[in-house]
Nucleic acid binder design. Structure first.
Lengths: 231, 231
DNA sequence: GCGTGTATTTCGGCA
DNA sequence: TGCCGAAGTACACGC
């Protein structure tokens, strides 16, 4: 990994065109050849970058560029597309290289899969008498997160999201349409369960007769008996 | 901006829990207090990070940690939530600080907004006699990109994408269903306009009576009289 | 390899 | 400020 701090400008062409005016920035060249261009703010996203696989060619600036104060030019070309990032470096403030080795990677916990597991175990949160049929109930267009039965024996298809957006309603709608063709299951009721449901998603869901349920992750985790296995 | 290369492990708790085993990584501390933890690969996304606003407290490791080889502990706490990132540093390979100043930021060109603006100005690309009603025509489930009238006075709802995928067809279908309930507008015809339309999207659109239109960005830009303001 | 669905998404725009 | 949709989305998992 090479770290360079320099005054620079940059130009990207590929899926869009973008330009970065002259300013001092951090340039990171990773071992796989990818390049990140970071400012001193924003968030984790670089101002500009090139993803691997790509290769970088360093060249001497032409006369015109030298006159503008350019000391070197980096041309980073993506290996499989026309994506191209050109960086003109002016003063270089810092330049160092470091050997990092391969990273063991991140271990995660607490994403949608956990919500699904916990709701499956606490299916009565949807109402007294609800019973689990199975998680990841398979259909022709993909698995339904949870299939259950309510106290009257009616089938309930549940779509789970961390953030309930409008596309989740579409997803559930497609499942419901398919499931309702199965005479063993029909009629199937839909439940959209999420930690947070956007107003527009709620409107669309309600319009289609889908019930919205808010999930309280902390409360569910508190009564989750498999909690202990996490870490 | 502070750059540190060090052998470290990390623990994140917040919207999820995550752990990073001991390895050598780049740690970037930005001027706004945010912290990035990068490996020598992956992509532009850090292995772990803390977004601003947040604050970092450096402390001396306890006896137990010292025994594990920890030389310092960074506790990064988000200012507005419970998000917390703890980093245990072992050997520090590199440590430098740099003043970068405020970045002028990225200037983009060629995104969906440009396509929309240009098509609104060149609405006759859809056929002679087409007139613009308005851009971002509001509905209960979100704004339609462009609403127009054709030469016969019929209403046309236009969905614009850079890359025409299947979800854009779904989106337009929802709008059409809603708009067709409005007696002042009905019947409303749908047009799916994109620089590139995926075969599956084209099939679905055609099946639903939606017209597909390919947008030639370069050609549209050539006749765009506000072109001069870009860059 | 491609398609699908998630993400500590981030980012910008508009009400 | 909050909500909503786009992103050079990236990324993992399924087939």
């Amino acid at each position: 990994m090479r770290l360079v701090v320099a005054r620079c400008s940059a130009h990207y062409t590929g899926r869009l065109s973008a330009h970065l005016p002259l300013a001092t920035r951090l340039l990171v060249v990773k071992a796989d050849g990818s390049v990140l261009l970071h400012s001193d703010g924003g968030s984790y996203k670089p101002l500009n970058w090139m993803s691997p696989p790509c290769s970088m060619a360093v060249s001497v600036p032409d006369e015109d560029a030298v006159a503008r104060g350019v000391t070197q030019v980096w041309a980073v070309q993506h290996a499989k597309s026309d994506d191209r990032l050109e960086i003109e470096l002016h003063e270089v403030v810092h330049d160092s290289s470091h050997s990092l080795g391969i990273d063991p990677g991140l271990i995660k916990d607490g994403v949608e899969a956990h919500l699904q597991a916990m709701l499956a175990e606490q299916i009565e949160l949807l109402g007294t008498g609800h019973t689990l049929v199975r998680r990841e109930y398979p259909t022709a267009i993909g698995p339904v997160d949870i299939l259950a039965r309510d106290s009257t024996g009616g089938t309930v298809a549940i779509e789970i999201k961390r953030r309930g957006d409008i596309d989740g309603v579409e997803q559930l709608t497609r499942y419901l349409e398919l499931l309702n063709r199965d005479p063993h299951l029909a009629p199937v009721r839909g439940v959209y369960a999420a930690q947070e449901i956007k107003p527009q998603a709620r409107v669309l869901a309600t319009d289609r007769g889908i019930t919205c349920v808010l999930l309280d992750y902390a409360a569910m985790k508190g009564t989750d008996d498999v909690d202990s296995r996490l870490f």
